[in-house]
């Protein structure tokens, strides 16, 4: 497959808690290509943030990556030492988070924070770091970078804070940006601006982005390809238009049906019956079967493999003809 930057294979992440072992991610596999935006969508608690953190090997304890491979430029990140990972974090893979107000350190100025990261990763002096920081702030569309360097996070608006976070993340030339709900905490108009910025940066820097979100509209606007995650299982992967217009998995169908549309005013929104499993109980077979309107006997017994249902479009569901699960089935 053309120019794959990241290849996640059969990733399992679990949390050993007092209540029992929570299986947050159960055998997720996907690729991110160079220069593309790959969307990972799902409900709260489906394991999408944990998947993102796994790529940096920063799953917080008691969480741990139990199995799988994460190939970055062909090298397995899970086989690397902590010291090697530290050289990858920030330098080759960077991350921005949901709540920019909480992700900026409140007691350091913007300049101290961004220059600290630059000076850690690059062999530049104070002046060099300062120049680089101002370039980055300009690149993310912030006016008056000189003044901004002296400002403290609480003096900035949410949109500005997120732009600063993006500037910090990309200041050391990362090839992959993991954006975990980057617009969720922002106003709608600011959301659109930040998304436009991400798209622009991706094009100008040939950046790959893993966009983690629960917002299908955000995916539709920005992602080339999308993976749908349910209870730690990847249920459908494909090009965004295919997944959105010819969705195959019953969960994806239900999810898209639940989006309010113009003209549906006054009618109740279709909801998915039942609740999301907690991850504590292991559901045999397909994780979605207790809520699926098309459930069959085989769904209760065995986990469905990913099968190809179109060009670059795979789905984990027994509704579609099996046996075609060669290359795409192994990893979508």
């Amino acid at each position: 497959m053309a120019d794959v930057l990241v290849c996640v294979e059969n990733l399992h992440v679990r949390f050993r808690t007092y209540a029992g072992v929570v299986h947050a991610v159960n055998g997720v596999s996907f690729d991110i290509r160079r220069g593309e935006t790959f969307g990972l969508v799902g409900e709260t608690g489906c394991g999408k943030s944990v998947t993102g953190l796994s790529l940096l090997r920063l799953v917080p304890p008691p969480g741990e990556i139990a199995a799988g491979r994460i190939l970055f430029n062909g090298e397995d990140l899970l086989a690397k030492s902590e010291a090697e990972m530290q050289r990858i974090r920030g330098r080759r893979i960077a991350m921005v988070f949901q709540d920019p107000a909480a992700t900026l350190n409140p007691v350091f100025s913007v300049g101290e924070q961004i220059m600290g990261i630059i000076r850690h990763h690059q062999a530049v002096g104070r002046d060099g770091a300062r120049r680089r920081a101002m370039e980055m702030l300009e690149a993310v569309g912030l006016p008056e970078p000189e003044r901004l360097l002296r400002a403290y996070p609480h003096e900035l608006s949410g949109g500005m804070q997120q732009r600063v976070m993006i500037a910090m993340a990309l200041s050391s030339g990362a090839e992959l940006l993991i954006a975990d709900e980057p617009t969720t905490a922002l106003d709608v108009t600011i959301q659109a601006q930040i998304l436009a910025l991400l798209v622009e940066l991706q094009r100008s820097r040939r950046l790959s982005i893993l966009l983690i979100t629960h917002n299908l509209g955000v995916v539709a606007e920005t992602c080339e390809r999308v993976g749908v995650l349910y209870a730690g299982h990847l249920v459908e992967v494909g090009r965004t238009p295919d997944v959105f217009q010819a969705m195959k998995h019953p969960y994806t169908q239900a999810l898209l049906a639940a989006i309010p549309r113009p003209g549906s005013h006054g009618q109740p929104l279709p909801a998915i019956p039942g609740t999301v499993p907690s991850g504590l109980e292991r559901i045999p077979g397909c994780a979605f079967h207790p809520r699926c309107p098309f459930v069959m006997d085989v769904c209760r017994a065995e986990k469905p493999p990913l099968v190809s249902v179109g060009e670059e479009h795979t789905v984990a569901c027994y509704l579609y003809p099996q046996g075609d699960c060669h290359l795409h089935g192994a990893r979508a």
Binding site: L56, G90, R91, F97, T103, L104, N105, F108, I117
Partner: peptide, 24 residues
């Protein structure tokens, strides 16, 4: 979260503990 972000930025543990966290 700013500590998680600092880790994600690849900053060394010493800097995180004795500078970024301690000042807070």
């Amino acid at each position: 979260k700013y500590i998680v972000a600092a880790r994600a930025a690849g900053l060394p543990e010493r800097t995180i503990l004795f500078r970024l966290a301690l000042k807070n």
